[in-house]
Amino acid sequence: MQTPAPLADYVRATSVADAIAQLEKYGEDARLVAGGHSLIPMMRLRLARPEALIDINDLDELKSIKVEGNEIVVGAMVRHREVLDSPLLFEHYPIFRECEKVIADPVVRNRGSVGGSYCQADPSEDLSALGSALRGSVVIQNSTGTRTVPMREFHFGPYMTQVGDGEILTEVRFPIRPGAGSAYEKVERRVGDWAVASVGTFVVVKNGVVEDCGIGLAAVGAEHFCVPAAEEFLIGKAPTEENLEQAAAMAAEGCNPSSDQRGPADYKKHLAKELTLRALRRSVQSSQGA
């Protein structure tokens, strides 16, 4: 039986400011809990042993999906299911729906949150591949103010992010790119599992040329979930099968997967190339300028 280690305290935050005040009060041994679907399993395995939990489920200010200027803003407490069902996100980037559909299962998606997924920072996190592909950013707040961190600078490594003690990730922002096509590809051993490999891409085609693109990869050891060289290769070129293949090969080349129970490293590298190619093809097809 797995039960979390004893917790000294559990409190409900009433606002973002209150959550930060509680974090400061309890210090480095406190953790925020949102959906809890990463943290509580970690606590049961004693991989996480917080002294106090600060529950942010009541923070309605973190629960909206909206457009602000030329960005889509997703609150940290938005659940996976809401991302999956959001017409706004789908309208701009079909990748959101494709990606969410393969994250965990419907019951887990009812609880798991966007902010929680990013802060857990699992190297196989699908939303991290998506965020890196779209070159999103996160907003982190502490008692002195807020700062915006590009998604591609957010992770220090597996399970390590820029969110420090006394800080809360409040929202994730994605730039709007008119005419962008996007897609997500994942290979998993069974429904709801972490990826063996997964790749998300967006492409903007204008006048027969790739004007902009993004490639995000999870579970294959890509630093910051991306391989910029592959994107740079494709930008400015025609989206021919040959060029897409070359970009996919470069993306795979930039990965450093490890062999584990989900498969050997060379297989994961093969997947990184093949899934990048498939996602790029579909992104090009759905780009409105194509």
Binding site: G36, I40, L53, D55, N110
Partner: peptide, 14 residues
């Protein structure tokens, strides 16, 4: 909403 009750604390359901 359905929830896996092994992955939520009783306190969170208060």
């Amino acid at each position: 909403e359905p929830v896996k009750s092994c992955t939520i604390l009783a306190a969170m359901a208060d």
